[in-house]
Design a protein around this nucleic acid. Structure first.
Length: 468
RNA sequence: GGCGGCGUAGCCAAGUGGUAAGGCACGGGCCUGCAAAGCCCUGAUCACCGGUUCGAAUCCGGUCGCCGCCUCCA
């Protein structure tokens, strides 16, 4: 039995993990807002949650994982003249908000699949759960937690003494407190909208009827409404990027604890840190990669990014740059090559020999998902001459259930050769030259092929080739 | 202004009181006609200053630097 402890943002401590219902874990992960493509920083959050899920599955928990799709929210900028991204995108492409949401939802799913994220048990859309959101709002209204102003219906944070608990906020000292609340009539700067009214003369892409009037749900409501629907009003783990803790998750807690009458609403809050791009702006204009597609265009395997992700702890900022990505790609390739060779080994492994490595691997992950340490165990196994190949094979393939690096599909790259009459003929010529020790000719042929992007490999059974 | 994270070898990065995991790159070696692939070997006293301690990368204070949040945000 592996000891499992996770760092809980709520208590700022590493705590032993124990689920509400023995053997079962409910996880809610904040998903994408689908008005644009998600970048590799977003992907880190998804990978963090996926690592968590895979580890718990490997510990034989039954996991219910819910990831929301936010397809309604900031429709019109309510403050200044800032343009709404959804509308802007819609206008540019001539699509509806729904079409845009569908498109980016699809690409988000493709990205997740490309890096081997397991499918969530539930993947609900906010627009499919308007009624649930309204119900939660009504419950809050009945409890006297809401007040109505011209702009919408707001949650009165003064009614919830624990408001600052999750993020350990010092509300009085916040910059927001020094400004004038942007929305006229808000009682406290931290108060947030449960329901916003459609304004006359303003064209909104999405709006619904509610007991308070026509409009749309507040930004945070969906997560509370959907998590309770699929995981219950009190569940185990909520994950998301660290930036969400201060506002989004804090507000989720407020509306959930008040609306459902529970405390704590969520037992463990796990937040992943950001990818650090140094001083360089993450934008295509500066040539800086930011989406998974960009990486793929540059020739990286999506799973090399997963390998990159596994090299750092999820709660630590991780520097991303080309040099680091190259290092990850190279390391990943080596690991694949190693496993590919081991996959051809026959014979049974010895569980007793494997046990210590298995234990180290699990202990690393059980300690707040310390993936870097787990990877050290992976390499220890991969290059351990004292272990039988069958044991190394069994261990590495077993580890991959948690790592998700696709090791079980690893092919021996040096055996993936091609055939084409013209090139095969050149190789024959080269072999003849080599046999007469005419290395100048042999090397010339190899160089010419290399110029075409063809790699020649000499082996015991003669030379073969493949495209790089 | 408030809150939080970080600064470990060229790069990524574990390690939170007992004398620095792992990966990549570099260099050297084995193998090869030469390469490639693979394998082996090799490097750091932990931003800086001061303190606590028998002992600190790890605790405390200060300095410098970097990143994030407080508005939608992974």
């Amino acid at each position: 039995m592996t000891a499992i402890a996770f760092y809980n943002t709520r208590t700022r401590k590493k705590e032993p993990f124990s689920p509400i219902q023995p053997g079962h874990v409910g996880i809610y992960t904040c998903g994408p807002t689908v008005y644009g493509p998600s970048h590799i920083g977003n992907l880190r959050s998804q990978l963090s949650a996926d690592l968590l899920k895979r580890f718990l599955l490997s510990e034989n928990f039954e996991v219910s994982h819910v990831i929301n799709i936010t397809d309604v929210g900031h429709l019109v900028s309510d403050a200044d003249e800032g343009e709404d991204k959804m509308e802007l995108a819609a206008r540019r492409s001539g699509e509806t908000a729904e079409e845009i949401a569908d498109r980016y939802t699809a690409s988000w799913k493709e990205d997740r699949a490309a890096v081997n994220c397991l499918l969530p048990e539930q993947n609900p859309k906010a627009t499919d759960h308007i009624q649930e959101q309204i119900q939660l709002g009504q419950s809050l209204d009945a409890g006297g937690f809401l007040y109505r102003i011209e702009d919408g219906v707001y949650f009165d944070t003064a009614r919830f003494p624990r408001y600052a608990e999750l993020a350990h906020l010092d509300l009085a000292g916040q910059e927001g407190a020094q400004r004038i609340a942007q929305v006229e009539g808000k009682r406290q700067p931290a108060d947030f909208a449960i329901w916003k009214f459609a304004q006359e003369g303003v064209t909104r892409l999405q709006e619904w009827d509610s007991p308070w009037g026509r409009g749309f749900p507040g930004w945070h409501l969906e997560c509370s409404a959907m998590s309770s629907k699929y995981l219950g009003e009190h569940f185990d783990i909520h994950t998301g990027g660290i930036d969400l803790a201060t506002v989004h998750h804090t507000n989720e807690v407020a509306q959930s604890e008040c609306g459902f009458g529970v405390h704590p609403w969520v037992n463990y809050w796990m937040h992943n840190e950001f990818l650090d791009f140094g001083g360089e702006k993450m934008s295509k204009s500066t040539g800086n990669v930011k989406t998974l597609s960009d990486l793929v265009e540059q020739g990286y395997d999506p799973l090399a990014f997963r390998y990159f992700f596994l090299q750092a702890h999820y709660r630590q900022q991780q520097s991303f740059n080309i040099e680091a990505m190259d290092a990850a790609a190279q390391g990943y390739k080596r690991l694949l090559t190693t496993v590919a060779a081991l996959r051809k080994v026959s014979g049974e492994g010895d569980l007793e020999q494997q046990a210590p490595f298995e234990a180290r691997f699990k202990a690393a992950l059980g300690d707040d998902l310390n993936a870097p340490q787990a990877m050290a165990v992976v390499w220890d196994v991969a290059r351990n001459a004292k272990l039988k190949e069958a044991d190394r094979r069994d261990l590495l393939l077993g580890f991959d259930g948690v790592l998700g690096l696709g090791l079980s599909q690893a092919e021996v790259e040096t055996e993936v050769f091609e055939s084409e009459p013209r090139i095969d003929a050149l190789l024959v010529q080269r072999e003849e030259a080599r046999s007469t020790k005419d290395f100048a000719t042999a090397d010339r042929i190899r160089d010419e092929l290399a110029a075409e992007g063809i790699e020649v490999i000499d082996g015991a059974e003669g030379a073969r080739w493949r495209r790089k």
